[in-house]
């Protein structure tokens, strides 16, 4: 009975839907000729299909409501873009790695702190973003700070840099190899962007001091306080960035 059910019954369904090859179709047609009761069932199933078309096909010619035919305002990322973006990130990452490697070889002064690489990467990846540079924007600053503090399990502040002409854009949570990290983004009225990266559990075996790092036109000051590392990165000149770094330091630590 089970055998009959699984093979013959399945073929009856496929017969109803016209999904059998010629030979099988003829076989089932013959079977139905000899079994009127089964033929009646199959006829009922076919009628179900016909009735469904009669009941629902009108929808096909109904005018489509505007709310459905309108594409949402956020732009669509074309197929294949993801792969292109992944390759792009790989290339950027590789490039940064190569540059930094070169820098280390040239200077051989201090071993590069992991925060440098992460802050550079995050800056390069997120500052060109037009639509989604941050996860939480500045209009929800209190929520952003609370959320990041909770995720990093340490009180975090979003320094006010308006005196230097930079407004908070917002922030996002990042992953690092020691756990969650936080990034704040700032922007001035010309669209120039700065990023401040905060990371916990950073290895530190020297006193707190500003360290400078640069690569092409990208400059960074970073410092480590206890086990928390901070890095401020931007494409502005060294002395302006140092002023900003001082301001950030004072607002966070003093």
């Amino acid at each position: 009975m089970i055998q009959r059910y699984s093979i013959l019954e399945n073929e009856l369904q496929a017969f109803v839907d016209g999904q059998l090859d010629k030979e099988k179709h003829a076989f089932i047609a013959e079977y139905l000729n000899a079994n009127p009761e089964e033929a009646q069932r199959v006829a009922a199933f076919r009628q179900q299909n016909d009735l469904m078309h009669d009941l629902f096909d009108d929808v096909l010619s109904e005018p489509v409501p505007e709310k459905l035919s309108k594409k949402p305002s956020s732009s669509v990322i074309k197929p294949g873009f993801q792969m292109a973006a992944a390759i792009c990130l790989l290339v950027i990452g590789g490039f940064i790695g190569w540059i930094m490697h070169a820098n280390i070889e040239q200077s051989i002064i201090v071993a590069e702190n992991p925060i440098v690489r992460q802050a550079m990467n995050a800056h390069v990846v997120y500052t060109p973003e037009v639509k989604h540079p941050v996860e939480v924007d500045a209009s929800q600053e209190a929520h952003l700070v609370k959320w990041l503090s909770k995720r990093l399990d340490t009180p975090i502040k979003s320094p006010d840099l308006t005196a230097m002409g930079y407004q908070l854009v917002g922030g996002r949570l990042l992953a690092s190899d020691t756990g969650p990290a936080a990034m704040f983004m700032y922007e001035n009225n010309t669209g120039e962007r700065l990023t401040l990266l905060v990371r916990t559990k950073v290895a530190n075996n020297s006193e707190t001091a500003f360290r400078f790092h640069s690569r092409n036109d990208l400059r960074m000051f970073y410092w480590i306080d206890g086990s928390i590392g901070y890095a401020i990165t931007g494409k502005i000149n060294k002395s302006n960035l140092l002023d900003i770094a001082h301001s950030v330091y004072q607002q966070i630590h003093l």
């Binding site: 929808v59 489509v64 459905l68």
Partner: peptide, 11 residues
């Protein structure tokens, strides 16, 4: 694809 999706959703 919208008209087809609408018919299916209606069913």
């Amino acid at each position: 694809q919208i008209p087809g999706l609408r018919r299916y959703a209606r069913a």
